[in-house]
Design a binder for these strands. Structure first.
Lengths: 120, 120
DNA sequence: CGGCATCCACATGGATACTG
DNA sequence: CAGTATCCATGTGGATGCCG
């Protein structure tokens, strides 16, 4: 790490009671949020079940909860596409798409350093 | 987002039961982990109380738990510097330092998009 | 299809007090 | 200084089943 980087980093969380890093962690720390965003980033807008299948392992309830939370944070938008065959579509907002660099960084790091999990 | 980016991203979490994004989130999602790493990145190796003061708001127990967890993940190293005036020092491992881009991305995003929290 | 209602389980975090 | 010991509150996630 260069000292320049350290300089830039120092600005954040410098003893204030609000910290952008912690706040971001609060959102991205929820188990499925990053993957959901990832899926919406790569596969574009899609319906509930498509998302459920794509995410793999998530239950209806948890996906529902997650999407609701993401909506409240202004990261995801929910649109009712049709009523007759009831169909909704979830997509990223501008704010949601702006998370791409973060998701990418997380993915790349995980790929690089967690492939053979030293998790235990 | 470019399509090239989408292509790269698609590789990850493609239906496998292990996902680098989720795994990374498991680590960085713990409330204080990112800030602790951030502090170690910017302020270098330091003792328990220095860290406790720096992090602001964290309790001894939680800092202790967090550091232990970070150690288990091979991100942080603990060294007993002296016994007489008992003193330890925490520092980042290579693996820990490698998280810098992720922390930076998180910090920059939080700074940019959460300054006026739409959290509620 | 796209959920919500329940109920439960567990991990994490917080407060307070005490110790080598 | 650098923790540990409790105890407790709560959030988050999971399983199952029903509904419009």
């Amino acid at each position: 790490m260069s000292e320049r980087t350290a300089d830039r980093l120092e600005v954040w969380c410098a003893g204030e009671d609000w910290c952008p890093i912690t706040s971001t962690a609060t959102i991205l720390g929820r188990k499925w949020h990053p993957v959901i965003i990832h899926r919406l980033l790569t596969q574009g807008p899609q319906g509930f079940n498509a998302l459920k299948d794509a995410v793999d392992g998530i239950s209806s309830k948890v996906l529902s909860d997650s999407l609701e939370d993401l909506e409240e944070h202004g990261l995801v938008e929910r649109e009712i596409v049709s009523e007759k065959p009831f169909r909704v579509e979830y997509s990223l907002t501008e704010r949601g798409r702006s998370l791409e660099p973060v998701i990418t960084a997380m993915a790349e790091w995980g790929q690089e350093y967690l492939t053979a999990p030293a998790d235990a």
